[in-house]
Amino acid sequence: MRLNLVLAFALIGAGWGLPLLAHGVELEHRQVSSVEIVARFDSGEPMAQAQVLVYAAGNPSEVWQQGTTDDQGRFSFVPDATLPGNWEVMVRQAGHGAIATIPVGAAPAAPANGSEPDMTPGVEVGSAPNSLISPSTTLSPVQRGITIGSVIWGLIGTGLFFARGKR
């Protein structure tokens, strides 16, 4: 079964928010860029509870983060902006799986200290489906239909050709 990895990317501007202080409890918030992946089988159903392994750029042998998808096949993680390059996400379940390569851009200089939040995204991400793993994701439904039709017609034609010679 082939699996589609639909990658959705949340791009939120990075920058320090206002710290809230009260009675010894300190809350700080910060908006970071995260990457969300959605794993589905090509029959359309989500790949629930599949195991996800995230590999940081430049270190394909060591698992950077590990987790499982939820019931909708979703999983999200926050890539480390100090490690730009091609990150790899592998989703596997019961012998089915796929690998997606996610380019993570270099982090710009730290946002300036000002009252207005800097809207420059800290991490630039884009999608590049791995063509070796799922070659047919690049085809449109029409192209795929024509290809499948041609294959079937080729096989039927072969059958007709050899059937004709015998009669």
Partner: peptide
């Protein structure tokens, strides 16, 4: 050797399509 090719070819087409039937 070629006598069975039409049958084999047609069943190859069936096999090819069958994996799209869930």
């Amino acid at each position: 050797p070629t006598a069975e090719i039409p049958k084999a070819s047609l069943l190859t087409a069936a096999f090819f399509v069958a994996s799209s039937i869930y």
